[in-house]
């Protein structure tokens, strides 16, 4: 596939997008918009088995393999976190399992989201990424 983008390519696109934002409002409006656009997860997967429990909100991630690549669907009851789910799906969807497992995902630091979004306890990105990588490891 000639149009295949690597995780690194997509990360760079996001870094470029985020660099255009001048205020925190624009950054969060982007995430909120991403959250609103994320298709709702099939209720069959909104169960304890797919849930990442957090102190504040819940996240559900469903992972599956197709044609040797790994795909994700997800949801959250909070809209900004839903945006983060969408962000991670944008970066990791349709990639080979090995690439997902080994991705350093440095873009998170570069795009400059508040540190509390990355905290495990607030059920942020770190917990989400951990589960996506674990799933990819199993599916790969």
């Amino acid at each position: 596939m000639s149009d295949h983008k690597t995780i690194k390519n997509i990360e760079q696109e996001l870094i470029d997008d985020f660099s255009l934002f001048e205020t925190w409002e624009e950054k969060y409006e982007y995430l909120i918009d991403l959250g609103k656009k994320l298709p709702p997860l099939d209720p069959a997967f909104k169960t304890e088995a797919y849930k990442i429990k957090g102190c504040q909100s819940s996240v559900w991630i469903h992972s599956f393999a197709k044609d040797g690549l790994v795909y994700f669907e997800g949801d959250s009851d909070a809209i900004i976190v839903r945006g983060l789910v969408g962000l991670m799906i944008t970066v990791l969807n349709g990639q080979p399992a090995k690439e997902i497992v080994n991705a350093p995902l440095d873009f998170i630091n570069t795009i400059g989201l508040s540190s509390h979004l990355a905290q495990t306890r607030s059920n942020g990105l770190r917990a989400m990424i951990k589960q996506m990588k674990l799933d990819a490891g199993v599916l790969g």
Partner: peptide, 20 residues
Amino acid sequence: VHPQDLAILLDNQGIAVRTG
């Protein structure tokens, strides 16, 4: 509105409240 979303946006405006 989920309380967590509010807390994040309020924090960006310098306001410390508790949610959850």
